[in-house]
């Protein structure tokens, strides 16, 4: 129950307003709240279909540009495929990553976690601005 609705009911209980007035006030409150809630989450969930990665950079004085669009469905399918990687391969990959200075334990990364990550990608926007490069990662 919202604070305003509670105030209206308190006023009704105290006899300050009549039942009809309370009903009108609650109806007005609901009318005000509906657009506010719609605006809060304006981007409809489940509508985003693609992950976009855009890079604009200058490399040795030459402009370079990368524009990648990956369907989110492909990421989900990739997660399912990655779940099939045998544990012995993950151990070897861990050793190689560790040798490269990236001590990540891939065996701790569960498919459910990756799927949850993909599910919430639509709320993510990453923007990196540096003097000679701009990177944007977002969903559309």
């Amino acid at each position: 129950m919202t604070e305003q609705r509670k105030d209206i009911l308190d006023m009704l209980a105290a006899g300050t307003i009549s039942a009809e007035e309370a009903e009108q006030l609650i109806a007005a409150l609901e009318r005000d709240q509906a657009p506010a809630l719609a605006g809060h989450d304006a981007r409809p969930k489940g509508k985003v279909k693609y992950l976009r990665v855009m890079v604009d950079a200058t490399d040795n004085g030459e402009p370079s540009r990368v524009n990648v669009r990956v369907p989110l469905q492909l990421l989900r399918a990739g997660v399912r495929l990655a779940a099939l990687v045998p544990p012995q391969a993950l151990v070897k990959a861990n050793a190689s990553l560790s040798d490269s200075g990236v001590p990540i334990d891939l065996t701790q990364l569960k498919p459910e976690q990756l799927e949850a990550l993909v599910e919430h990608l639509d709320e993510m926007t990453v923007e990196v601005d540096s003097p000679d490069a701009t990177v944007r990662v977002f969903c559309e």
Binding site: K49, Y50, D59, E62, P63, S64, R65, V66, N67, V68, R69, V70, P71, Q73, L74, R76, A77, G78, R80, L81, A83, L84
Partner: peptide
């Protein structure tokens, strides 16, 4: 499971786009 997962990856490919420019 492996064939199913591979088929899902192939089915999800439409819409993918890779655009790379250097100079």
């Amino acid at each position: 499971r492996a064939l199913g997962a591979s088929w899902r990856v192939i089915s999800a490919l439409p819409g993918a786009r890779f655009d790379i420019e250097q100079g």
